[in-house]
Design a protein around this nucleic acid. Sequence first.
DNA 1: GGGCTCACG
DNA 2: GACGTACGTGAGCCCG
Length: 925
Amino acid sequence: MSETFGKGHHLHLIDGSAYIFRAYHALPPLTRKSDGLPVGAVAGFCNILFRYLEGNKTGDAPTHVAVIFDHSSKTFRNDIYPAYKANRPELPEDLRPQFPLTRDATRAFNIACIETEGFEADDIIATLSCRARDAGGQVTIISSDKDLMQLVGDGVGMLDPMKNKLIGPDEVFEKFGVAPNRVVDVQSLAGDSVDNVPGAPGIGIKTAALLIQEYGDLETLLARAGEIKQPKRRESLQDNADLIRISKRLVQLDCETPLDVTLESMVVRLPDAEPLMAFLNQMEFRTLTKRVADSLKVAVLVEAEAVEAQAVPFDHSKYDMVTDEGALQVWIDRIYARGFVAVDTETTSLDEMRAELVGVSLCVEAGQACYIPLAHKAGGGDLFGAAKLVPGQLALERALAMLQPMLEDASILKIGQNMKYDAKIFARQGVDVAPIDDTMLMSSALFAGLHNHGMDTLAERYLGHASIPIKQLLGAGKAQITFDFVPLEEAVKYAAEDADVTLRLWQLFKPQLHRKSVTTVYEVLERPLVPVLAQMEMAGIAVDRDTLSRMSNAFAQKMAALEDEIQTLAGRPFNVGSPKQLGEILFDEMGLQGGVKGKTGAYATGADILEDLATEHELPGRVLDWRQLAKLKSTYTDALQDHINPETGRVHTSYSLVGAVTGRLSSTDPNLQNIPVRSDEGRRIREAFVAPKGRVIVSLDYSQIELRILAHVADIPALKQAFKDGIDIHAMTAAEMFGVPVEGMDPMVRRQAKAINFGVIYGISGFGLARNLRIPRAEAQGFIDRYFERFPGIREYMDATVQFARDNGYVQTLFGRRIHTPEINAKGPAAGFAKRAAINAPIQGTAADIIRRAMVRMPDAIAGIDAKMLLQVHDELLFEVQEDAVDALIAAARGIMEGAALPAVHLSVPITVDAGQGANWAQAH
DNA sequence: GGGCTCACG
DNA sequence: GACGTACGTGAGCCCG
């Protein structure tokens, strides 16, 4: 409830129509990019409104405000004088459609928007001015229209927004030569050619002012017209008395306009971020959207008011089930009318390469979503009954044929949560979905480090909505069904809700990208990678099953032998694969020293512990050998065989763009980013990753990219020079630290320097380095101290980075990717973790950004070469190339990779790429 | 499903 | 002065 308008209140009345014309003529004829709708006047209008609101933050702020518009129809003045405003030129064709949009804009800015059929804006302004003044308040009319000057007086002033000049009685006198209350008289005599007000012929403002000054007011003047000495003036007044009186009725503003709005309803309100940003985005005003977003602190508002901002309640019963072409066409038409759509697919599997499309859901507006079931089945419960398609569904081919033009239409934005998944499903149906937006990637750009980016998390956190768990539909474990067996009614609720949630998240996140300055991160480093990764994943890599199978057998034999040996050494059979049992054998039964129990009460039996014990006893060493084989067999040689796709004969991993907070990709099902390489035995697994006949595997990897980035960001001259000179960086570090020449350096010394170099990237500690190098902690700390003494810039960089994290709650890469560090001010061990993560994130993240940029550019760069990019392993890209195109591929890909930071970032160290090739990955690496 | 272990950069 | 500590991932296994 707002208090009654009165004393102490200040009402601003904005002449909206004047703003529109001003904006229209001041700006070139802008059109909306996506559909050509003329929006120049709307843009100008919004800019004026925004500047006005910004001005109010500092100036003499109003308590109430309204924008007044003319209503496009005849007014009472046309009854008095049909020629009134008759000589106005026709409205420009591209202006008329903008009128309703300016009303929308006003409401979007949360300002009262007033127009009344049959009345001009000026009369409404007059009426509201009178009411506000009579109520004891103050009024400022924001307009440069001289017709409104008659309203100036006690409690009512004007502001010329063009000149930003206040207009009071003095300024009115300057203009009309009379006090405001006689302005009407002057105008009645002088007429107005613009509005086609006749007045008295031959008399202009100057003469009219003189006459009124002399005779006091119009009626007295007309009554005593005979006294006027100048014959021309006298005759004009005498001959045109009626016309003058009509003119007076035309220029006199009506203070009694019937209005059904109250002054109280015009109370100043803060703009609601969500509808305002939605409107500006819909208009595609990029610059203004950004400025408004900055001004509104959209992020803060949105986060605090997420529930409120999304006022539309979730209502599963309102979702549509689309089962015929007519209904689908209605949805497609709605999508075209809107220009964007949230899309979600339902399938039979999380593996995009095997999943069958079951249905599609669409959402065009919060709460308005549909599900199109396409391949739902029923039956098949008993042994012999085959499942049958549920009747009444649209045919899949027919639905896809209808959807395809929309999904591929460059003017329709397709919004998804993890669009890579849906895009691949559609791609396998021959539909190339573009352009896209992805709420998961937006979340990653906005909130990396704060929470994960799954839809359930986002819905809960930003919409205050708990979405239907998929488990509720599919069940779990052995009894789990696939989505095609979900009953239609349930499927509609779940599937349409997903599209609904996605659309709402998009509405929330899109404006926040600007506010948090991560639009470029999203648009350059996230979104464009979706089609690139989709292509790589669908291409897959050829894996030779026989090679793997032979290795599995060999491993199994060796393991069996080791197991016997181990159990003999232990004196009894036990499960070698059980760390718990192993711990009991080692420390309780065999009585070895150094047993440390973890939080679960079991002895730790990690490789480092077993290595230490290996000097005391044979058993731990055998267990280490066994474990290595077990790992290779179960995780690689066995598991990889299961991942060979029966249709393609290749292995298709799935990359996650949001798996790592730093911006690195992660790889799952299977993880092809951790194929063994460090041990000879493990490296042989890479021999199974092969090129088909006539083709070659090519690997290109960045050399020391993280150390190069460190040298650049911490600005260490010695490191930078070493990279420029192409010197062995670890040997150089050792030489600097220990004062030994690079020539003939002890490999142990170099190894220590290398460990320190890597330690630095991870946020080094004496403890960590000591453990890594297996040296006393004091010695390790001595190394670190000497390192920082020699390279003081590194310490400065680390301190500055941690301080930045404390000040801002995040750190960032050279490309602006933000990684949040919520734990940075924590107490206890968590503080150490957070500090080291904060130090590492900009380095690891910048390297991740660089290879992402390379990957985005790669398809175009190698378009003319018979080659496919297959895998990414953080600093390595793997290709499959026609054998006679290897050199061309290496040249092109290397060029892209080495220049990937440009032009956004100019590194002060060279970035170099090593290349290898061969029949398989082992040879190429 | 959490913890342990270990594969990678 | 003690606390605990290298950064970032994913998968398979054990065990409650």
